[in-house]
């Protein structure tokens, strides 16, 4: 109960923060909130099940592109609803074809999915509508986007906390531990995975949709940038993908580091990020939070 109160207080504090910061800092806050939302949504499915989804940007970009296509013909809430529905439909398609099989097929499918969607949209725009690139003109200030993004991040974390307490969360953990055992204890494997993956992908699509007005000009190469998928995974892993607050703990420092690297080393930053990713997999396979627990346990043993 106290934890919930602290979390709500923090959320309220974050919500009034835009009053006190500059335009540039507000941009950073939006970026942070989006990556917290992305990493938390990613971990909602991949954290417990160990099904690594490499398709974050496929959904993220789809969300952004939906807004770009529909922003002049539909009211904003309807656009967001469309984006969520399209994201969910895509997730169902991917999930239905791969989640019945072993995890490797899912990884492979998600690995190429962003490139597939990007090429399809490019092909469609070039050969059918004849233009590549669209504009988003929405009457939204940076603050509006920040509040929406903050809400999404809160929803992603809140939903994870809630799912962790339900039968679905228990089933997901059981699947992550051992699929055979999970199946024998009566868990419907494919359905459980499909539900969690769809929720996760829908949230990711919404992050893309909500963040898209910041770009103004949108084209496939911009919104389907593989770095987004990459950052999401490394953030969740760094903090600890199976912890509620893990993705948040990983996302904030890494986002700031990424901003700094991409400004100061625009050409070489992917190399740094890649090396860091490998380092995380080797040194902190379960994330910082689990590492801290281990350290605490070790200190406790030494103290005795």
């Amino acid at each position: 109960m106290i934890r919930l109160a602290i979390a709500l207080l923090a959320l309220a504090a974050l919500a009034v923060l835009p009053r006190f910061v500059s335009e540039y800092e507000l941009g950073l806050l939006i970026g942070m909130a989006s990556y917290v939302a992305l990493a938390s949504a990613w971990a909602l499915f991949s954290g417990h099940t160990h099904y690594i989804s490499l398709a974050t940007v496929a959904f993220y970009g789809t969300g952004a592109y939906t807004v770009a296509v529909l922003n002049e013909s539909l009211p904003y809430p309807a656009v967001l609803l469309c984006a969520a529905l399209i994201g969910a439909a895509m997730a169902l398609l991917v999930g239905l074809s791969t989640l019945r099989l072993s995890g490797i097929y899912f990884v492979i499918f998600t690995f190429g999915l962003a490139e597939l969607v990007r090429q399809l949209i490019t092909w469609y725009e070039v050969s059918i509508t004849g233009t590549l690139g669209r504009y988003i003109f929405l009457d939204l200030t940076a603050r509006d986007i920040y509040w929406q993004m903050l809400a999404l991040a809160a929803i992603a974390i809140g939903l994870t906390a809630w799912i962790n307490r339900t039968r679905l969360g228990l089933a997901l953990r059981a699947i992550g531990d051992d699929e055979v055992v999970a199946a024998h204890s009566g868990i419907h494997l494919a359905r459980t995975k499909l539900v969690a993956f769809t929720i996760s992908a829908t949230l990711i699509t919404l992050v893309g949709a909500v963040g898209s007005p910041r770009w103004v000009y949108v084209e496939p190469l911009i919104v389907f940038n593989p770095t987004v998928s990459f950052l999401t995974v490394i953030m969740a892993l760094l903090g600890g993908a199976n912890r509620l607050w893990g993705p948040l703990v990983g996302a904030i420092p890494l986002f700031l580091l990424f901003e700094w690297l991409s400004v100061n080393f625009p050409d070489t930053y992917p190399i740094f990020l890649g090396l860091m990713f490998i380092a995380v997999v080797f040194v902190l396979p379960n994330g910082v939070l689990a590492g801290l627990d281990d350290l605490r346990a070790w200190l406790g043993r030494r103290g005795k």
Binding site: I52, L54, V107, F230, V233, I234, L237, P270, I271, L273, G274, L275, M276, F277, I278, V280, V281, F282
Partner: peptide, 10 residues
């Protein structure tokens, strides 16, 4: 998968 995904970016 994770390690080679990092290697990919390097």
């Amino acid at each position: 998968i994770l390690a080679t995904f990092g290697l990919l970016f390097v």
